[in-house]
Design a protein around this nucleic acid. Structure first.
Lengths: 239, 239
DNA sequence: TCAAAAGTGTTGCGGATACACCCATGT
DNA sequence: ACATGGGTGTATCCGCAACACTTTTGA
């Protein structure tokens, strides 16, 4: 990726491999059938044709990097208004074989069934992979993925973000299984209930599950307004 | 910052404001006389001449961004082997007035008295500012600084990094005052002792303070080896 | 009536908090 | 003697973990 420049002072044409190219790569997490999954895409052409990768793209000149990440996500999943946070920049000099490209990693949490409905995907192939079943990815994408997983495991204990992976209405057991899966631990049903309910972050919807072959459980919803109010009063989500 | 390019396909000269320039900016924390401080530099020339800023610089083509940050820090403070971690990338399109420049924020924790001894500083002016006394900085540097402060306050509770701000040998009260200053809280002497000693991360040096006008306190040292061992066994620093 | 998951109750332990108190040392 | 910080001891409270138990519902 050698570009030709005109040197401002001398007026001469100089060749320089392009330093400072920037991309964005997204780790998109979903939760489905008790498993934490990541959305990967198969490259349709270019030097890494046929290989799996994190979805990503270029930053446009007029948009902020957060906006670029949101736009890419919308293009990739058809979903708007997704939980999205920057991880950090990855910039080993040799991470991209054809030149110096720094990438900014993002991670997103989506409700997988929303994605299935809208399915705005146009790329050649995209697939949800279980977290324990990730194939080899191009460039340093495995490193980025592992970093984001570690980050998610920390974050989920510090802030109530896990809800973004669940449907709007969920049962306490679903929530517990989400935590068990992400953190890789087993939990006690009874203690989990007490702990999460004591925080008063969940709104009891006075609704029950339907079409289950056992006693139907109450449905709850995460109440973001209450969380904001509590946070302002100094409340700190900790799990 | 408009640059002239030669378009690869058409061969024509095109002007384009440079997209994707990348810099590094460092928030260097120090702890001195009971106050948390940040090292700021005064710009000697350029469009922001005379204004205060976070120390920073450019990434070289052949170095990783982590190495670039380490090199810059060495150039700025004369110090090697410093605690240094990436924050994240900052990339609002208008953050830099003369073109699109994305910056990668880093934060560093240094022992301020080491800095005073070596003092490898060549820039026009550099000064330690108390955290509550930060002037207006150029570009989005106040945003970066505030972000790093918030990050530090979280991090210091999750990992034993505060020690990097203290001298090699310190007393328990010094450590407590460090935590009090960073977190902005008051703590109980007795409870702090128990809590920190129970973790067994501190090595009792069997030495005492000298030249103090009161009963001399025991000196301790943070034992990184023990910490590593404990971490491998599943220990999790939490404060 | 049995399986499966929902949901409640109880008990013991350990860490956090809030104090009260004594110790050593320089001025 | 007293100011200053160093250092210890103790009572209380509360959350957490472990575990036993009852309830509801479909098959």
């Amino acid at each position: 990726m050698v570009k030709k420049f005109i040197d401002e002072e001398s007026g001469k044409v100089i060749e320089r491999s392009v330093m400072n190219s920037i991309t964005i790569d997204c780790v998109i997490f979903g939760f489905d059938k008790g498993s934490l999954k990541v959305l990967l895409v198969k490259h349709a052409d270019g030097i890494s044709k046929g290989e799996w990768a994190l979805p990503g793209g270029w930053i446009r000149e007029e948009e902020s990097i957060d906006n670029a990440a949101n736009r890419l996500l919308k293009e990739l999943t058809g979903l708007d208004n997704i939980y999205l946070e920057q991880l950090k920049a990855f910039g080993e000099p040799d991470r991209f074989p054809l030149g110096r490209v720094i990438t900014i990693g993002y991670y997103a949490l989506v409700k997988i069934e929303d994605y299935n409905i809208k399915a705005g995907f146009t790329a050649s192939e995209a697939k949800w992979y279980k977290i324990n079943d990730i194939p080899e990815l191009i460039y340093d994408h495995n490193i980025i993925l592992n970093f984001s997983l570690k980050h998610l495991r920390n974050r989920v204990k510090q802030a109530p973000i896990g809800f973004n992976l669940l449907p709007e209405k969920f049962t306490l057991l679903q929530l517990m299984q989400l935590y068990e899966e992400i953190l890789g631990v087993e939990m006690d049903k009874s203690n989990f209930r007490r702990k999460i309910l004591r925080m008063k972050l969940l709104q009891d919807l006075n609704e029950k599950q339907k079409d289950v072959s056992h006693r139907a459980a109450k449905l709850y919803r995460f109440d973001y307004d209450i969380y904001k109010k509590l946070t302002q009063k100094g409340f700190n989500f900790e799990f």
